[in-house]
């Protein structure tokens, strides 16, 4: 969430750039390049692509600042341009798949109650988190998310934006953001369960 100060700074720099004070662009680039790069990288998983996207986004900010009307936050506008540029990079990639909720949930009986034991691996994540193996597993799981769910997950859970902001950026209703986020979390939970459960079992056998 941008703080009041960040919004005021954005507003000032945007106005300066619109007024032709070109140095403001330098400052905007400094403030935003990490956010732009990180989101582009998490979508494309490729350093060169993310760098290209970052350049395109910076250039768009510079050239199209007069088209920014201030109806949404400046950062929302920047996120939107970043997403569009990232999707242009990805457009040749595979067709989108659909996440079936049933595959992501445990099995229920007819009354809707769970029937099997469920392993709680949440405690074992701390010790594993910084191993390269678990980092790879997590990155792979996120990269397997369908695009619609992935972008919501990256903005909401990774970037930490509010549900409302994500809706503004993606032009989605609040319920739509929530439902995609829930699907994404269920999908990832399932993928990570496969890994962490195996790890827990491995540990227990020793």
């Amino acid at each position: 969430m941008p703080t009041k100060e960040e919004r005021e700074l954005d507003d000032r720099l945007v106005q300066e750039l619109k007024d032709g004070k070109l140095e403001a662009f330098d400052e905007i680039a400094q403030n935003y390049q990490r956010k732009i790069y990180a989101l582009a990288f998490n979508l494309t998983r490729n350093q060169m692509d993310a760098q290209d996207v970052a350049q395109e986004v910076l250039l768009s900010i510079f050239k199209k600042i007069h088209t920014f009307q201030g109806k949404s936050a400046f950062s929302s506008w920047v996120y939107r341009i970043t997403l569009n540029a990232s999707y242009m990079k990805l457009r040749t990639k595979k067709k989108d798949q659909f996440v079936s909720l049933d595959d992501m949930l445990p099995s229920f009986n007819n009354s809707g109650f769970q029937q099997e034991k469920l392993l709680d691996w949440s405690d074992s994540t701390d010790s594993l988190l910084f191993s390269n193996e678990s980092k790879e597993v997590i990155e792979k799981a996120v990269s397997q998310l369908p695009e619609k769910e992935k972008v919501v997950f990256l903005l909401r859970d990774v970037e930490g934006l509010s549900t409302e902001r994500v809706g503004e950026i993606l032009e989605l209703s609040i319920p739509a953001v929530k439902s995609r986020l829930h699907r994404a979390r269920l999908f990832l939970r399932k993928k990570l369960s496969n890994y962490f459960e195996e790890f827990d079992t491995r540990g227990a056998k020793k």
Binding site: I138, G160, R185, L186, L188, F196
Partner: peptide, 17 residues
């Protein structure tokens, strides 16, 4: 267990990414 691992999922993904 489901709740704990659901929460952990967001947490570990955020910390990694």
């Amino acid at each position: 267990s489901f709740l704990n691992t659901y929460k952990s999922t967001s947490k570990v993904c955020k910390e990694t990414l």
